[in-house]
Design a protein around this nucleic acid. Structure first.
Length: 591
RNA sequence: GGGGUGGUAGUUAAGUUGGUUAUAACGCCGGCCUGUCACGCCGGAGGCCGCGGGUUCGAGUCCCGUCCAUCCCGCCA
C-alpha cells in the first residue's frame, strides 16, 4: 500500500537512528549477497541503503529478490547505525542504513535502454533524447534543472525588490519583418491569415512602458526558426526586462543586480566590477564581439610593420585595403606539430581566410610561412610589434578586416582550449557602442544590427537623415561572459518621428511602416516615456552556472539540431481534415 | 544550403589487406553467495552491422545515394 513518506532518500543521518521511517525512490543499486541483500534507493534528494537480512520476514526477503534496477520501491524500516567497517564515507547517508520491515514495489521497468548511474558510459544523444525521462533521472541533469530553478527564483526576487512587475505577453502574435524566421500558426477564424510566435516580446514590452507600467519583467519563451547550434534551441527563455526613464547606466546596473543575485544564490560567489569595452575595442583586441577574457593572447595589428612586405598573401591583402593581424602562443613553437597547424589553417579557412601565416620563432629567426613576410632586416620590428620571443608561435592572418578578425578571434579561443589556457571562473564584460546599422552587400541595403527599435546615440541622430548610416552608433549594450553573449539590450526610440526615420533608413517605406508597425507608431504618439531594457539569455546563464557543454543539458525537453523532439516525435503530420479547417494545404507529401 | 565526425546485441565499444561461426564489457534471463556499496562467481539468451543500390566468387569492411545524431560555416535584427 502506498504510504506517505516520512523522509526523502537524501536526508537521513545518524541522528535518525532508531526511528521507523518510510522512504520511496528508484532502485539505484541492487546487491544480493544471498542471505543478505542491499538495495540503494535514489530520489532527487539523494540515496539511502536499505538492508535486507535475517531480521526481515520471508515475505520481505522474497520481494527483495524481485527488485531490479530502476524499479520504484517503497521501504519501511528502522534507521540503524552501520557497523564500523561498513560505513561508506563517500555517501552522504553512509553512516546509516534502513533495516527493512516492509518493502513494496510501486513500479516496474522494461529493460533499460541505458544505465542511469554515473558510471554507465554515456549513451548517444538520440537514445538519451528518446528516453528523456530516464536521462533526466541522472543526478547531473537533475542538478542542472535545480540550478535553473534557483536562478529563475533569484532573478524574480531581485527584480521584484527593484520594483519590477511580472507581466505576461502573448504567444500568438503578429509576424514582423526583419529578424529571424518566424514560427507560424494558421488562423481558423481568419482564412489565409497567420499568427507568429514571438521572437521576443519586444514591442509588447515597449508598449507596456507607454501604458505606464514603469518597470516590467518576464521570464518568457522566445521562438526563432533558424538552424541550431550547441547554444541555440528553436525555443529558448529570456529574462526580459524593460523600464521607463531608463539611461544606459541605469539598465546596466539593474542587469548587474540580477546577475549578482543569481551568482550569489546559486554559487555563493560575488561578481567583481564588470568592465566596459567598446565594440571597436572588442573586435580589435579579440576579433569577436563577445570576447572570452579569461586568458590573454590578444590580437596585435601588424599592418604597419608589414606595410612594405612583398610576400604575396600580405601584399595582396594590403593592396585590397585589408589588414594583417596576429597573436602569440607563448612557448608554442616547440610543441605545435605541422598537423595541428594544418588544423588551425583549416579552421580559419572556414571563416573566409585564404590561409594562416604561422611562424615558429627561435633565436635564429622565424620558420614557417611567416618567414617570407619580411627580410632579415625587417624581422626584429615584426617580432617586436607582435611581442614574440624565441620559443613562441606566432599566428598571423592577412585579408579583409572581417575574416581576419573572425578567423583569428575563433582560432584564439580554439588554441586556448586546446592548450588548457582557460582558467576557472567568470570574466564578465559589457560591450557598448555598437554600430546601429550594417550594410548588406548582397541585399544592397542597410539592416539594423540590434533591432529597428534601438535608439541611435543622441549625437548621431542628425546622421539618420543626412549622413553615413555606417557612422551611427546605437545606444545598445551586450553583456558577455566567458565568450558567450548572455544578454543584450538598448535604449529604445520613444519619438515616433525618429522611429519613422530609422524605418526609412532601413528602406521600409511609409505605407509599409503604417501597415506593419502602425500600432507601435500610434503608441509612441500617445505619450511614450523614454525607455529601455534588456534580455538575459536564461539558458546560456544556466550553461555558465553549471558548466554544461550543451544547451540541451539545461532544458528539460530540448530538440535535436533538426528541431525535432525525439520523445514526443514533434513535429508530426496532421490529418487532412484538420488542415482543411485551418485553410492550409500541404505542397509536399502529407499524412 | 555547405563541410567535419559518428551509426555493429538493450547500451558502450572492438572488428586487421574484403574471407568462411561478427567479439568484449555492462545490462537482461537462470543459478550460487550474510556486510555489499559500480558487490562477486558460474551458466544462458540476445544481431536488418542505420537504410537503399552497386562492385566482387565473397561486403560490417570498398564505391554511390539516402536517413538519423552531433559539431562548425552560412543563418540567428
Amino acid at each position: 500500500m502506498l504510504e506517505v513518506r516520512t523522509h526523502t532518500c537524501g536526508e537521513l543521518r545518524s541522528d535518525h537512528e532508531g526511528q521507523t521511517v518510510v522512504v520511496q525512490g528508484w532502485a539505484h543499486a541492487v546487491r544480493d549477497r544471498g542471505g543478505l541483500a542491499f538495495l540503494v534507493l535514489r530520489d532527487r534528494h539523494g540515496m539511502i541503503q536499505i538492508t535486507i537480512d535475517e531480521r526481515c520476514s520471508d515475505a520481505v526477503r522474497s520481494l527483495a529478490k524481485q527488485i531490479r534496477l530502476e524499479y520504484v520501491v517503497q521501504a519501511r524500516g528502522v534507521v540503524s547505525r552501520r557497523a564500523e567497517g561498513a560505513i561508506n564515507e563517500a555517501m552522504a547517508t553512509g553512516q546509516i542504513e534502513i533495516v527493512a520491515e516492509e518493502l513494496e514495489i510501486l513500479g516496474r521497468t522494461e529493460p533499460l535502454p541505458f544505465a542511469i548511474h554515473e558510471h554507465g558510459s554515456d549513451a548517444k544523444e538520440d537514445v538519451r533524447l528518446k528516453h528523456r525521462y530516464l536521462d533526466l533521472r541522472r543526478p547531473a541533469l537533475q542538478h542542472n534543472l535545480m540550478v535553473r530553478h534557483r536562478a529563475s527564483q533569484a532573478a524574480r526576487r531581485a527584480l521584484d525588490e527593484l520594483g519590477f512587475v511580472e507581466i505576461e505577453t502573448p504567444i500568438l502574435t503578429r509576424a514582423t519583418p526583419e529578424g529571424a524566421r518566424d514560427y507560424l500558426v494558421p488562423s481558423r477564424v481568419h482564412p489565409g491569415q497567420w499568427y507568429a510566435l514571438p521572437q521576443s516580446p519586444q514591442l509588447f514590452k515597449q508598449i507596456l512602458m507607454v501604458a505606464g507600467m514603469d518597470r516590467y519583467f518576464q521570464i518568457c519563451r522566445c521562438f526563432r526558426d533558424e538552424d541550431l547550434r550547441v547554444d541555440r534551441q528553436p525555443e529558448f527563455s529570456q529574462i526580459d526586462v524593460e523600464l521607463s526613464f531608463a539611461t544606459q547606466p541605469l539598465v546596466r546596473g539593474i542587469a548587474e543586480a540580477v546577475i549578482r543575485t543569481i551568482w550569489r544564490d546559486v554559487l555563493g560567489e560575488e561578481i567583481a566590477e564588470i568592465p566596459i569595452l567598446t565594440y571597436a575595442e572588442a573586435i580589435s583586441r579579440y576579433g569577436v564581439d563577445a570576447p572570452d577574457r579569461r586568458f590573454g593572447m590578444e590580437l596585435v595589428d601588424l599592418t604597419p610593420v608589414l606595410a612594405d612586405s612583398a610576400f604575396v598573401p600580405i601584399r595582396r591583402a594590403l593592396d585590397d585595403q585589408g589588414i594583417v593581424k596576429g597573436f602569440v602562443v607563448r612557448s608554442g613553437a616547440g610543441d605545435t606539430s605541422r598537423r595541428v597547424l594544418d588544423a588551425y589553417t583549416e579552421l580559419v579557412r572556414s571563416y573566409g581566410l585564404g590561409g594562416l601565416l604561422w611562424g615558429k620563432v627561435s633565436a635564429e629567426g622565424v620558420s614557417g610561412p611567416l618567414a617570407k613576410a619580411t627580410d632579415d632586416t625587417g624581422r626584429p620590428a615584426l617580432l617586436a610589434a607582435a611581442g614574440a620571443e624565441p620559443g613562441d608561435l606566432l599566428l598571423v592572418a592577412a585579408g579583409a578586416d572581417k575574416p581576419v578578425h573572425t578567423g583569428l578571434g575563433r582560432l584564439r579561443v580554439h588554441v586556448a582550449r586546446e592548450r588548457s589556457l582557460i582558467g576557472e571562473g567568470f570574466a564578465f564584460c559589457w560591450v557598448v557602442d555598437f554600430p546601429a546599422f550594417e550594410h548588406d552587400e548582397d541585399a544592397g541595403r542597410w539592416f539594423a544590427m540590434h533591432h529597428p527599435f534601438t535608439s541611435p546615440k543622441a549625437e548621431h541622430l542628425p546622421l539618420l537623415t543626412n549622413g553615413d548610416l555606417g557612422e551611427v552608433y546605437a545606444d545598445a549594450y551586450d553583456l558577455v561572459c566567458n565568450g558567450l553573449e548572455i544578454g543584450g539590450g538598448s535604449i529604445r526610440i520613444h519619438d515616433p518621428q525618429v522611429q519613422q526615420q530609422v524605418f526609412s533608413a532601413l528602406g521600409i517605406e511609409a505605407d509599409e511602416q503604417r501597415e506593419k508597425f502602425g500600432f507601435l507608431l500610434d503608441a509612441l504618439s500617445h505619450g511614450a516615456p523614454p525607455h529601455g531594457g534588456l534580455a538575459l539569455g536564461l539558458d546560456r546563464l544556466i550553461m555558465l552556472l553549471t558548466g554544461a557543454p550543451s544547451i540541451r543539458d539545461v532544458i528539460a525537453f530540448p530538440k535535436t539540431t533538426s528541431a525535432q523532439d525525439l520523445m514526443s516525435e514533434a513535429p508530426s503530420p496532421i490529418p487532412a481534415a484538420q488542415l482543411e479547417e485551418l485553410h492550409v494545404q500541404n505542397t509536399r507529401g502529407s499524412a
